[in-house]
C-alpha cells in the first residue's frame, strides 16, 4: 500500500540512494515559492499598491515577532524564517494536488529541516553567548544535564515527526477515502481535503513558530531571559 500511496522513486546515483520524487517535488515547491516571491516583489514602490501591501504586512509582522522574541539581534534570521514558512506551506499543499506529493511527506525532508534548525540553534547559541550557553544546560544543578540533553534531542525529533506524520496521514487518507467511497459520494474526500488544507497551514505555522522559539532561546540577550 505504501508503494501505491507514496512513490519515492528511489534511485541510485553514484552509489547513493535519492528519493527522486521528493527531490522533484522539493524543486517544484522551491520554484513556486520563488515565483510567488518574485511576483510579489517585482515592482516595489514607495507608495504600496495591491500585493505589495500583503508582502509588507508579512515582513513587518515577522520583524515584530523576531524583535519581541529575540530583540534586534534576531533580525538576520528573518529571511530564514520566511523561507521556512513559505516552503512548508507550499510543500504541504502541493501534496493535495492530484498526482503530486508533498516533499514534507518524506522524513528526509522534515528531519533535514528540523536538524538544520537545531544545529543553527546550538551554533548561534555558542557563537553569541559562548560559555553561558554551555553552562545553561547544567542549571539549576549539574544533574539536570540529563533532562536537558533529552529535551535537546527531543526537539528535532518532535519537529520532524510532527510535520511528517500530519502530512503523510493527510495524503494517505485522501487516497484511501477516494478508493473506499464510490465516485458519487465525494463528500468525505472533499471534506478531508479541506481539512488537509487547514492542517497543512497549521503545521507550517507550528513548525515555523517552534523554530523561532528555539532560535530565540539561543539568540536573545542574557538579561532578557527570565
Amino acid at each position: 500500500m505504501g508503494e501505491e500511496v507514496v512513490h519515492r522513486g528511489t534511485e541510485q546515483i553514484m552509489g547513493f540512494s535519492f528519493n527522486m520524487e521528493t527531490l522533484y517535488m522539493t524543486w517544484l515547491a522551491m520554484a513556486i515559492v520563488l515565483l510567488i516571491a518574485f511576483l510579489a516583489t517585482r515592482s516595489l514602490k514607495i507608495i504600496p499598491k495591491g500585493w505589495q501591501n500583503v508582502v509588507e504586512i508579512i515582513v513587518l509582522w515577522l520583524h515584530e515577532q523576531l524583535d519581541a522574541m529575540m530583540g534586534e539581534r534576531g533580525r538576520f534570521l528573518a529571511p530564514f524564517i520566511v523561507s521556512l514558512f513559505m516552503f512548508l506551506l507550499v510543500s504541504n499543499w502541493l501534496g493535495l494536488v492530484p498526482k503530486m506529493a508533498s516533499p514534507t511527506n518524506d522524513l528526509n525532508t522534515t528531519l533535514a529541516l528540523a536538524l538544520l534548525v537545531i544545529v543553527m540553534v546550538h551554533v548561534l547559541g555558542i557563537f553569541m553567548k559562548g560559555g553561558h550557553y554551555i553552562a545553561h544546560f547544567f542549571k539549576p544543578t549539574p544533574v539536570f544535564v540529563i533532562i536537558n540533553a533529552i529535551e535537546e534531542i527531543a526537539k528535532p525529533i518532535t519537529l520532524a515527526f510532527r510535520l511528517f506524520g500530519n502530512i503523510l496521514a493527510g495524503e494517505i487518507l485522501i487516497v484511501v477515502l477516494l478508493k473506499l467511497m464510490p465516485i458519487w459520494m465525494p463528500i468525505p474526500a472533499v471534506a478531508w481535503l479541506a481539512f488537509s488544507i487547514f492542517i497543512g497551514g497549521v503545521q507550517a505555522v507550528i513548525f515555523t513558530m517552534l523554530s523561532m522559539a528555539y532560535l530565540a532561546n539561543a539568540v536573545k540577550k542574557e538579561e532578557e531571559e527570565s
Binding site: L23, D106, A112
Partner: peptide, 11 residues
Amino acid sequence: NMTFFAQIINF
C-alpha cells in the same frame, strides 16, 4: 538516505 543531505542543501 542521501535525500536528507540533498534537502538541507536545497533549503
